[in-house]
Computed example of a mutant assay.
Amino acid sequence: MRRVLGLALATLLSAAQAATLPSQAVLSGTCCPGAVWSPDSRSLLFLDGPPARAATGIYQVGVGGGAVTRRFSSVAFFSPLLRWAVRPGTGDATTLERLADGRRFTLPTRGADVTWNRTETRLAYTRSDTTGNFDRRLTRVYVADVFGPPRQVAALYGGGVSGWVNDQTLLLSGKAQPGERDRELFTLNVRSGARRSLGRALSFRGVSLSPDGAWVVYYVAFDSKARNGLWLRPTNGGAPRRLDAFGSYRWRDAGRLLLIPLRPDGSPHEVREYRVQGASWRTLGDLGDQVRQGDWSVSPDGGRLAYLSARDGNLRVLNLP
């Protein structure tokens, strides 16, 4: 009897997990693709302007909907913690402004955004040749402390910066020589110069570091059977794992990866969760809808998911189980 009850309970739990996840429209009218979360997970920020708004700027709306207010009156690349505004100029120089006090410094990024470490005290950027096939373009990687001068730490072809593993270590991909077939995914200690190779492939797609920098997930396609697929591997050089899945993915937190599998038949998108510890999948539920053009994101606290509805173009928010 106990075994029968246990199986029945497991069946009920599985059904509950696969149920449609209730969501709420917080913005309507197809105005706002590319919305991003505020650092405190309480609101979503988006770019808008006339005719919907009186002036162009960065606006915000709460996770429960309601009033829309203007957060920033100017348009810039804002850092993830909203501590910095990165404002490209007309030439090589880009101005970085600390929003707390308005203090500024410049870097020659040629109008590109920068990649911040988690504390936003250090950054990285690249400068690439502007002509020729991307696979053969030389890219130079620079790092700088805030208010400090830049320093070149690497040169590679057909690649760039994927993120900061920690305050001293970058995750990079690219080729050592322009004529090579394969790219290398590797970590680089910007102080000591120490490198650790994490893999080689024709190309690394969707490279994404876990919030703590301990894991990296990426996809390989159009390569050999042994290399193709969705991969998860520790950045300390441990053995990789091939995940039996295909779709769009985001980190929920340091130990959980969310994935929305491809549904070419037009059926509602499911949300699946992979737990790094235990190497197990579970289905959280479906959206009763599809995500438009891969436009979805997870709140920094891991509690909510926002997506652009393919059905009506509204920005919707749901609570994750």
Rank of each mutant, 00 (worst) to 15 (best):
R118M: 10
V161I: 15
N133Q: 13
G179M: 06
L172M: 03
G193V: 03
A124L: 09
L198T: 01
V217C: 06
W116Q: 06
N189V: 04
Q152N: 06
L123M: 15
P178E: 01
S208D: 12
R137M: 04
G174P: 01
Y218C: 02
W164C: 08
D145W: 08
R118K: 14
L172A: 08
L156D: 02
V165W: 00
A154K: 06
D145F: 08
D135T: 00
R118Q: 13
Y157F: 13
T115D: 07
Y218I: 00
F134G: 00
W215P: 08
R127W: 02
T121H: 12
V217N: 00
D145G: 15
T169F: 09
V217W: 06
G199L: 10
S203Q: 14
F204M: 05
G158S: 11
L171N: 02
S203K: 12
E184I: 01
W116F: 15
G179Q: 14
G213P: 09
V161A: 09
R137F: 02
G179S: 13
R183F: 07
L202R: 13
N166D: 15
S208L: 14
G213K: 05
S197Y: 03
T139S: 15
W116A: 07
G193K: 11
E120Q: 14
R191K: 12
W215L: 07
V114T: 09
K175M: 09
G160S: 11
L185E: 04
L185H: 05
D182A: 11
L156Q: 13
K175R: 15
R127V: 14
T119Y: 11
W116S: 07
R127A: 09
R118H: 11
Y219H: 11
Q152G: 10
F134I: 00
V165N: 01
R200A: 08
S128M: 05
P211M: 04
W215Q: 06
V141E: 04
T169R: 08
G111W: 12
D129G: 15
V161R: 01
D145E: 13
V217H: 01
T115Q: 05
S128D: 08
Y157V: 00
R137D: 04
G158K: 12
G160T: 05
G193H: 10
Q168G: 10
D182F: 08
Y125C: 11
R137K: 13
G179N: 13
Y218M: 06
R205D: 15
R183V: 00
Y218D: 02
G199I: 01
A201M: 02
V114G: 06
G213F: 09
G111P: 13
L171H: 02
S192N: 02
R205E: 13
D129S: 13
R195H: 10
S162E: 15
P211A: 03
V207I: 14
S208M: 14
R183E: 12
T131L: 15
R140H: 11
G179C: 02
N166P: 12
